[in-house]
Design a binder for these strands. Structure first.
Lengths: 254, 254
DNA sequence: TGAATTCCTTATGTATACATATCTGTGCCG
DNA sequence: CGGCACAGATATGTATACATAAGGAATTCA
């Protein structure tokens, strides 16, 4: 019932708008709302148990994030993404991260920032080693991978870039962590993680040495690992539901 | 009065939300609302003559565009930009346009797209020539310059990139046309426009020949013309009010 | 039988009333 | 005299009623 949804313990304390946002995003991610489907405000109101006003605010935000399409005649529809669109989004993210890495290198990162980056790097090493040994350290990898990428953005110290990157990552399959779980715990996964970690190390070295152009090129190439992994996942029709936001992706053959 | 504002002929036919957006954006650009100033919904309602609902929607949109800051405790404040932030925004725009140019080149632009780009180029030639001869062709230059830049974005054929570029250009001083009027009709202006036009020509050539890396580098460099011009304008304290959104910029010395 | 038009249903856009949190000013206490 | 606390005022957050336009179904006409 609506009442039970609206009164969940985790929801108390947050605004109705945020609640609506989270609920809608979750429903989209879970495939509960299918791409192309129109979202009726009234239907959402009944499902989530908040009034139309915060629902409308949430719809605006999600449309802004790119998860919804605004219909010209009014209202919104769930957006679907082709493989091509996903790869395009990853390319944009990679380019922005490349700029961030270059700026971090050129502007010269402070000792503290470099130190925290080195920290993330070491913990990523641990995670990769653990996974290579068969232990489940994916959560740790995801956490520190995100921290590593965020550290670079912070070091770039460019507000406009921050905003743009935040938006690029809003598409779940375009985030730096999107590829991590695509392939399950296969030997292939370990190889990919090792390569990615090697790229992390190189990026760090480039930034530390203030080699801006190298840092940028490396970061771009790093994002292409994600692109390649995604493309392989799609082509093998495997584990698409493991990709964040996989429910939003419609394959060409379907 | 509110009524007179609300019933202006140009406003009829558009939604109240759009009306509020336009009115607010104009007030911000004109410096009628100063950076840092908090925007009270009720005050806006009285000024524009629409109810709070569309005003709130407009505020959300403008905050999303980067013109307003969301205050943590609620509400919004007009945002101010330092010289550094402006240059940072231009760098991001240039990077995205660089990506667009590279993609346009690599993916191979269709004949029709190239043709319309060549068209813009020729008309820009006319405008530059006219300005060099002392005639006022700035409006024409701005129009065709925008068309030229838009053509590249279109040729890149990347939806995610389109969205990001649109957002980058939302900051008025970061648009490709921002620098055009910064210096008035001085000999210096003519020189700058000639250089910029030469870059346009080179970018076109690179895209036509599918030289992606060159197209990207050229496009980035092209944006640096804007950056340099802006920096000079600021340093000479001259004509800052001629820069689009100049009212949003607060100089370090002030 | 097909197409077009009209009416009805239902959606979103807008205005406004109500709830609640924040800020400010004043008064009291230390 | 300074700072804290409380109360009032005013802001935003939310809910809902109303206006209007879009969409669909049914009926009628060609």
């Amino acid at each position: 019932m609506a009442a039970s949804l609206a009164s969940r313990a985790e929801d108390r304390g947050t605004s109705q708008t945020i609640r609506a946002q989270l609920a809608l995003r979750e429903m989209l991610m879970a495939g509960e709302i299918k791409p192309g489907e129109r979202l009726s405000e009234l239907a959402i109101v009944e499902k989530i148990g908040v009034s139309r006003t915060p629902v409308r605010a949430a719809l605006m935000t999600l449309a802004e994030e790119g998860l919804l399409d605004a219909i010209p005649s009014g209202g919104y529809a769930a957006r679907g993404f082709t493989e091509r669109e996903v790869l395009d989004a990853i390319e944009v993210r990679g380019t922005l991260e490349g700029l961030a890495a270059r700026l971090a290198a050129e502007r010269g990162a402070g000792t503290i920032a470099l130190q925290s980056m080195r920290e993330s790097l070491l913990r990523l090493d641990d995670a990769v080693t653990a996974i290579a040994e068969g232990r489940d350290a994916f959560e740790a990898y995801i956490e520190h991978n995100a921290a590593f990428h965020r550290a670079i953005a912070r070091m770039a110290d460019n507000a406009a870039l921050d905003r743009q990157m935040e938006r690029a990552i809003a598409l779940p399959f375009a985030s730096p962590n999107a590829f991590v779980k695509t392939q399950g715990e296969t030997p292939e996964t370990r190889r990919v993680l090792l390569v990615a970690q090697e790229q992390h190390r190189s990026v760090f070295e480039a930034i530390e040495r203030r080699e801006g152009s190298r840092a940028e090129a490396l970061m771009r190439e790093h994002s292409r690992v994600a692109a390649r992994n995604f493309a392989q996942t799609v082509r093998s029709r495997a584990a698409l539901d493991r990709v964040p936001g996989g429910a939003l992706i419609r394959l060409a053959s379907e």
